[in-house]
Design a protein around this nucleic acid. Structure first.
Length: 273
DNA sequence: ACCGCTGTTCTCCG
DNA sequence: TCGGAGAACAGCGG
């Protein structure tokens, strides 16, 4: 699912679930979720969760005795809390707590990732070092946004999804932020005005805030989950009416990902409104 | 039943 | 160096 808001909610859930509890056993199945990482080291995790930091879509776990874990939810990864003995579909790894609860990392498609690493080294892992500013964890001004993104020659939406420029936006929230800012996804970053950058940084914040509210609660919420309505302003609304002006929302492909935009609210030309 | 789609990231080419 | 295509995988809707 997981873009910045969903990963942040996962982080908050885990912090709450671990609060005051001890990890008494960690076990994991032999799956590609561990990639090359030493799965045996996962089983050595134990004791208190001393800190859990999110950077972009990555989770950095620090347990006792300097044992750490890098986590990524991939496309379909999620953490769920169950009682001992409960069966969880696609459970790949489990934290057993001292209160009989079990925190499962469940991931059908296994694009997610678990990498046990000494906690002191988590931040110096290449994938973590490569991340740009995180709008929520680091804060983001319009100037910082411009500095990170304006130099890209790619389409604006692709640049926003580049984790090395800004960490945390994915296909949904990049589209949502651009809609909120009234900017067309195919705009070239170098053509944005200072006012565009200001609207865009506010739109990114608004999109993240909305995502955080949307995802509140115990269980992760997925787009197609429970047949619930599409909560997004433009994402997934191809062919349907724009939520602002009712003109038909267009969908097209950028760098292999589907993009949604309202041609009227997000003009391709110069500046947005 | 089959085809094409899906919220991510990495590797491999040109 | 950069950018696009394809791959990794499973489920779901049309």
């Amino acid at each position: 699912m997981p873009e910045l808001p969903e990963v942040e909610i996962a982080r908050r859930n885990l912090v709450r679930w671990f609060d005051g509890r001890r990890l008494v056993r960690a076990d994991a199945d032999d799956t590609r979720v561990f990639r090359g990482a030493e799965r045996g080291h996962f089983a050595l995790l134990h004791g208190r969760l001393e800190s859990l930091v999110r950077r972009g879509k990555y989770l950095l776990f620090a347990f006792e005795e300097g044992r750490g874990l890098l986590g990524h939810l991939g496309m379909t990864g999620k953490f769920v809390r169950r009682s001992e003995g409960d069966v969880v579909p696609y459970s790949r790894a489990r934290f057993h707590l001292d209160n009989g609860q079990v925190l499962h990392f469940a991931d059908a498609r296994m694009f997610g990732r678990m990498e046990p690493t000494p906690s002191a080294g988590l931040r110096s892992l290449d994938v973590v070092k490569a991340l740009g500013r995180d709008p929520l964890a680091d804060g983001l001004t319009s100037g910082q946004l411009e500095q990170a993104v304006a130099s890209s020659k790619q389409d604006l939406k692709i640049a926003l999804m580049d984790q090395a420029r800004i960490a945390g936006l994915g296909n949904i929230h990049a589209a949502e932020a651009l809609f909120r800012a009234g900017l067309h996804p195919a705009r070239k970053p170098s053509t944005l005005t200072p006012d565009d950058w200001k609207r865009l940084v506010q739109a990114i914040r608004a999109s993240i805030d909305f995502g955080l509210e949307e995802q509140q609660g115990e269980e992760p919420v997925y787009l197609e989950d429970g047949g619930s309505e599409n909560p997004f302003l433009v994402y997934g609304r191809g062919g349907g009416p724009c939520s602002k002006c009712a003109s038909p929302v267009e969908s097209f492909t950028q760098a292999g990902r589907t993009t949604y935009a309202c041609p009227k609210c997000q003009p391709r030309g110069r500046t947005g409104k």
